[in-house]
């Protein structure tokens, strides 16, 4: 089993682990997610129909309406929030969304998490120490840049 470590900066503190759900598309809150189920609903989104509930969401960043934080906030209220969030592009939407979702979140990585993490990998996020540990899912071919 291959384990890869990524370093980054704490956005919201805490430690969490879970299965990864990854996308190369930015995520919209208002008009982009169903807050009751954590499902991506944007028509042409790579993850349309899939839910981030109880998973580690790995995505480039936020887009769209200023309602972004409110819809992630509603997802937390509904118990449909992700376990942790990892994103590279820092914006006010992504930051506030992570803060009110209140799950461990990180940004400013030493390598792009989307080059390393695939959907189904097991990801441990220690935002307080700024460390992400990725365990590749069984049967996956070893990542070329693995440690």
């Amino acid at each position: 089993m291959t384990t890869i470590t990524i370093k980054g900066r704490k956005v919201v503190g805490g430690v969490a682990e879970g299965e990864a759900i990854t996308t190369h598309d930015t995520v919209s809150g208002w008009g982009g997610i169903d807050s009751n189920t954590g499902t991506i609903i944007e028509r042409r989104h790579e993850l349309v129909g899939q839910s981030f509930k109880d998973k580690v969401l790995v995505f480039p960043g936020a887009k769209g309406s200023s309602g972004y934080s409110h819809f992630f906030h509603l997802a937390r209220v509904a118990g449909a929030a992700p376990k942790a969030m990892l994103f590279s592009k820092m914006t006010t939407k992504a930051a506030l969304g992570a803060v009110v979702t209140r799950v461990p979140s990180m940004s400013d990585f030493d390598r792009d998490p989307l080059e390393v993490i695939e959907t189904g990998d097991w990801v441990k996020v220690d935002a307080d120490r700024g460390i992400v540990e990725v365990t590749k899912k069984a049967g996956a071919k070893p990542a070329t840049a693995a440690e």
């Binding site: 200023s66 934080s69 006010t92 939407k93 506030l96 803060v99």
Partner: peptide, 23 residues
């Protein structure tokens, strides 16, 4: 409100990010 934020920054020259309900 994205359409108001872009107007505020660009046309009025006032300064704002795209804030959210909580902020």
């Amino acid at each position: 409100e994205s359409s108001a934020v872009v107007y505020c920054n660009s046309v009025l020259g006032a300064r704002t990010n795209t804030e959210g309900r909580e902020s």
